[in-house]
């Protein structure tokens, strides 16, 4: 599998990244090199191998459904770039 500039555009859009033309070209080359290297993994037969998503057996980690303290609003807003009426402000979500 080989990545084209079109693929890079698509992925950049998914990742919410804006790339310059120079970056797009550079990334196309670099990603192709890395993915070519990754094709090595196809040398291995993994038909009957379970995937590892977590190294040690952990079953659902739960706690009692008991209400605990929430964050005070000043802390929530401490790093907010823009706020109004105790809410974080952003451009319109729906247009």
């Amino acid at each position: 599998m080989s990545i084209t500039l079109k693929d890079v555009d698509h992925v950049a859009n998914l990742a919410r990244l804006e790339l310059s033309d120079a970056e797009k070209t550079q990334f196309t080359d670099q990603l192709n090199a890395i993915l070519k290297y990754a094709e090595k993994l196809n040398e291995l037969d993994t038909e009957n191998v379970e995937p590892t998503s977590h190294v040690f057996e952990l079953v659902n980690v739960m706690r009692e459904d008991v209400q605990k303290e929430s964050l005070p609003i000043e802390k929530v807003l401490l790093n907010a770039p823009d706020e109004e009426d105790d809410q974080i402000k952003v451009p319109a979500v729906l247009e």
Partner: peptide
């Protein structure tokens, strides 16, 4: 950072997840 986000997004994207991410998880087991 951008390069790795791009690589990861591609590996997880529809059509490529099995070939890259899932495959890598299986090799991790080995």
């Amino acid at each position: 950072v951008k390069r790795r986000i791009m690589l990861g997004t591609y590996a997880l994207s529809s059509g490529y997840y099995d070939a890259y991410y899932l495959k890598a998880q299986k090799v991790r087991t080995l």
